[in-house]
Each structure stands twice: as C-alpha cells, then as structure tokens.
Design a protein around this nucleic acid. Structure first.
Lengths: 349, 349
DNA sequence: TGTTAGCACTCTAACGAGTCGAGTGCTAAC
DNA sequence: GTTAGCACTCGACTCGTTAGAGTGCTAACA
C-alpha cells in the first residue's frame, strides 16, 4: 500500500492535532479540519490503512489514534525538508532571538548556562548544552610558576584557550633557573602536540633531557601529564529539567526519575553529545524519536540535538529533551536560530 | 498539660512506627509494642492529649495519627541529645565509613562529587555538598604570563589554593620587562589582601604607580579585579535527587518539580548553605523540619545539614533533603561520621 | 469505484451505591 | 487509673451503571 497524497495529509493532520491536544484523535475531528472535506467515514477507512502501515496506533478499540514513532519520523522528516527550503527566510528571522542571549558573556561558563536557560525557557522542554571541545586537543602553552618554596602552579592552555590548572607539591625546593629550564623544556617539547600523542616514550625522553634534575622534573611532568589527561569528561550544563513535569506522559514516577537521574549524573547526556558530534558532519540538527534515542532510558522521549562551532574544529552540542509529542516545528526553528546565533557570535570573537 | 514520661514513650513509639511505615498509626498498633503494656483504649486517651498538645495530627476522624512538625522536632532533639552522650562510641565507629570515600581523591571536584554520591547512596535521600570556601578570601599569588603577542593569561591563587584564570586580550603587544614589572606590582600590592578590600582607590593607586604603561596596566587590573570578584557564587554538587521519587509524599508533580528545580538551579541550595554556615559555630549538625526550612518550597521536606572544615576558616556544607518522615537516626549518624571523616582527611593533608 | 450515511458495537472514564475495615470517642465496669 | 465494649466515622475499594466518544461494517449513492 502506498502513502498517497491524501493519506499524507490525513497523517499530518492527525499528528498536528495530537501534538496540540495530547489526546488520541478521532475521525470526526479530522473530518472537520479545513481543506480536506472528507466525511469521517472516509477518514476512518484511511486511518485503518495508516494503522496497517504502522504510522499511527490505536490505544484501544474505541479510542482515537496516536502517532507511532514511525509517524513522528515521517512528520519530522517532512518538517526538516521544509526548513531546508525556507533557509533564506529563516536567516532573516535570526535576529529575533538575539535578545535571548546575553549581550556580553564575559565567561564561557556563564554563557553556556544562559544558553541552556534560554533554550529551556523558549521551548518548555528540558535543555542541555555541552561545552565546546576540540576534536583534537592541542597544547598551546604551558607555564610553571613558583607559588611557595615547594609548591608550583602549572597553567596549561590548550587550543581554543581552555585553561587547566594544577598545583604541584615538590619534595625539595626548586630554584629559579631550574624552573626556567623546565618551562623551556616543556614548551619546546610539547607545544602544538595533540594530547593523545603524549605518550610514555615522549615523557621518558623529556626526563632524559632534563638530566640532573630528573627527580623534580619527573614529578612535575607526571603532574602535568595527568592534569592534561584527567579532564576527559566533558562539561554539560542543563536547565529546565523540571519542564518534564508539564507532560503527563513523562511525569509519572518511574519515567521522571530516570530522566532526572540522567540530568543529574550527566553520564547519559554525555553519550548523547558524543553520538551527536559523531554525526555532526551530516546535518545540522538531529532528531531522535523514542526508540531511536542513543540512550535506552529515554525511549519515551524525543531528543533533538544540534552542534555549534566555536572555531575550526571546536564543536559543542545543544539539545532538548521532551515528550515524543513535541512541538517539533518550534523546536527545530529555535535550535536552528540558536546555533546560527552561537556560530556568528563566536566567529566575531 | 505536661508531657510526662508515658506520653513521651507513646509519642516516640508513634513517630518511630510512622517513620517505618509512612502510614498513619493507630492506637492498637502502639498497644502491641513491647515495653508499654497498655491497652489500646488507654493509648487512645493519651493520643487525644498529644493531639491537643500539638505533637501529632489526625488526618481525618477515623484515621490513625501522624507526627506534626512539633512532634518531629521533639524526636530530633531527643535524638541529638542521645548522640551527644554517645560521642565517644561514635568516634570509634568512625572508620566504618572510611571505605565510603575514595582512597586518593586527586582533585577536589572529584572528591566532592564522590562525597555527595556516597551520602545519597547511604541515606537514600537527595544529597548535596558545597565546595569549601573561605570566610575571608585572601589573595595569595598572581602571575601574568604572555601566551601570544597580545594575549596574557592571569593566574590568580587565593588562600586555600583555589585557582582562577583569566585570559586578557590587550590592544598593543607587551614586552617582557613590562610584564615583569606588572607581576611585581600586582603581587606586592595585592598579596594577602582580602578580596573584599580591593576597592577603587587601591586600583587607581596601582594605576598611578604603573605610570607610563597605565593603559595596558589598567586593562590588566580591570580584568584581574573582575575575575576575582566574578566567582562569588559557591559551587554545589548534588547527587541522588531522584531519591525523592521513593517517597510518595514528595513524588507528586508539584512538589517533585519544586525540589528538582532547586537541585538544578542551585539557588535555593546556596541559601541553605549560607544559612548553615552562619550557624556553624553553634552546633555540628542542623535539622530543619518542614516549615523551619530556610527556603520556602521545601516546607514538605526535612533538611539536615552539617559543616566540615578543610582548614582554619575554610568551611563547606554537606546536606541531605528528604521527606519529613526521615530516618533521622541514620541520617544524623551518617552525617556525623562523614564530617568527621572529611575533617580528619583534610587535617592530614 | 470511491464516498458517505447510518447503525450496532466497543471501550473508557465518571459516577454512585454499597461494603469493609481500621480507627476513634465515649461510657460503664473493674 | 485502666480497660472492655460498642456505636460511629470515614476513607479505600468494589461493582454495576451510564454517557460518550469513536470505531468497523454495511448498504446506498453518485
């Protein structure tokens, strides 16, 4: 059986109505919608077909129909295609959203929190944003400074100007000259290197070069190496997790508990981010409906994600999580606007 | 009417039973408890008195009784007094908990997260911990390093070895000599100063001293000043917010939503922390029952907090939030052990 | 052949009556 | 002062009924 034009129209009408009301929709409701002009009986016949084809479900015999995952998928694909066409229009609309963001976000963390907040407030779903992250993390600059007699601060800057710190306690005091030498050694050896490539052989080579002070030096290098490696987990900021309580189908204890846990532990969100980043080249926005979700305990939700670019090769992810009955149209627009906004904002800097 | 010994016994029995079951408790249940040996009728009479005195409530005419906030307060006070007596015993028990904590927490953040997790896992309530914080924040060390021609990294260490960073973009390149001079100026002027005391007059004085390079210098100083002030909000880590779903009286949409929001936004948790810290001199552990809570939308919860000491004058707060029907005995023990553990752990370092 | 009106049928949500049981308050006896 | 006994209260639960929304099917129609 083919999904002809009339079936498509009816399917879309069913989905749109269901998105609005959240209740199973019956044939009569659809028959009253303008532009179709079919009797409820005809609609019923078509609906039966749509059930057979798997686009809609019937909770029980005498109830209306609700969209299946497949139905949502059809709707979203449809929507995405439309969006693609209307891209130019959208560009022009983009500045509507400007006031959503802070004029002056002096610190990345604050900006990210703000974005998450604005995203959740605008959509009424739970929102998250991952801090931008290099695909390849390259070291840019290392500086050791003596803080106290036997305490050193190491400042490590990686590409994209992310900064990491480490306080290093050393057994015996270190003198200025040694410190200078160490700084030179670290910078000449490691600058521009990808963090993945800093392996034991390089470290032992450095220790060799350090010669006499190998003792202190190895302490320092170990600490630096560890601090670079340490922070593998990406930072994720969330907002509006409480929005899920607005949707009865997610608000029951079990489901809510799962989602809340995901938002608190961040482990699952991290998975979503990685999944998104790994597909980021294909398409701007990604929609995971129900079972399609990268994490198992969101199978009653839809997850919409998008990547933004801070700079060549530095990407982050924004995402919203809500019921399958989600206002996809609005969410897609908002995401599109927001990523555009972020992209141009970062380009300027 | 006085709260004689028998009334006390009955009241405690009611509360304990209610804590276990979460259901209103009737006279017959109490009469069957060992050690009282009274008929249900007698219990009923006493219960009526206890209702009059405000220690227990009767949800409706033919239901059993549940403790009121006043009743819980009585119970908790009782419990705290007992704990005080048994302090020596407790000291000996303290190492039971040791394996709860990591052997080697190389980073403060990770340790704090770990503590929160262990606290929520041990109690089955929602847990939080605030990062230790100086009552008075003193600058300890400032270091500017040139990263690129017109970019400087400022590393600022405050007492307690908290580190802050700031990247400063400057209009015109800065030479080594100026940088050195600036470092000297910053350290000699600001070291040991309380952050609160860095005011405009000091800043303008520094600009004066900087003389010719006042242009660049003022940029730098502004950035440093801002980065110090910026981070006024304290860091709070949470765990086990989903535990609230285990308690039906908190799991309905409205209440759950409020608590979840509090845990996500952290604003309210911050209020609780400040409240706790401001009383930390009085007593180790604090219990807020229902309406006693420092934040309004936790009036259906009990909040138990305690302070730990990282070092002289550096305090942090741990807390758990759960239903009023909370296993206070266990919670108090756990908190006590945990703060002891933290205190001794930090003392050693 | 596709569309529509009509009708019997199904199923849920909502309501109300009736029952059960836990628990109370009161009274009278011990 | 304590207790046994009893009538009373009230929520939780069950069950049957009803109303209404929606369906599937059939027969008539264009």
């Amino acid at each position: 059986m083919a999904l002809d034009d009339r079936k498509k129209k009816i399917l879309l009408a069913i989905i749109r109505t269901y998105l609005e009301t959240g209740e199973p929709v019956g044939s009569r409701t659809i028959s009253k919608i303008e532009g179709l002009d079919l009797s409820s009986a005809t609609i019923r016949n078509e609906m039966a077909d749509l059930v057979d084809m798997g686009y809609i479900l019937q909770p029980h015999t005498s109830a209306g129909r609700i969209p299946s995952d497949k139905g949502y998928r059809f709707y979203v694909d449809q929507l995405m295609a439309e969006k693609e066409q209307k891209l130019e229009e959208r560009e022009r609309e983009a500045d509507e959203m400007k006031d959503m963001l802070v004029e002056k976000a002096d610190r990345m963390e604050r900006l990210l929190k703000q974005v998450a907040r604005s995203l959740s407030a605008n959509t009424n779903y739970a929102a998250m944003i991952s801090a931008p992250r290099y695909n390849i993390n390259r070291l840019k600059f290392i500086q050791l400074s003596r803080m106290e007699a036997n305490r050193i601060v190491a400042v490590i800057v990686v590409e994209g100007n992310m900064i990491k710190n480490q306080i290093i306690n050393i057994d015996e005091p270190i003198d200025d000259e040694t410190l200078l030498k160490l700084n030179m050694l670290l910078n000449t050896t490691l600058n521009g290197m990808a963090i993945e490539d800093i392996n034991l052989s390089i470290i032992s080579k450095m220790k060799q070069q350090a010669g006499e002070q190998a003792g202190i030096i190895s302490e320092v290098i170990d600490a630096v190496a560890e601090s670079i490696k340490a922070d593998e987990d990406l930072e994720i900021y969330t907002s509006g997790a409480n929005n899920i309580f607005k949707y009865p189908e997610l608000a029951d204890n079990e489901r809510a508990s799962e989602i809340i846990t995901a938002f608190e532990e961040k482990k699952q969100l991290t998975d979503i981010v990685y999944e998104t980043l790994s597909h980021s080249d294909e398409k701007g926005i990604q929609v995971y409906i129900g079972e399609e979700s990268p994490v198992a305990n969101m199978k009653d939700c839809s997850v919409v994600t998008a990547t933004y670019e801070l700079d060549e090769g530095i990407h982050g992810t924004i995402g919203i999580i809500g019921p399958k009955r989600m206002d996809y149209d609005k969410v897609l627009s908002t995401m599109k606007k927001l990523t555009n906004e972020l992209d141009t904002m970062f380009k300027k800097n």
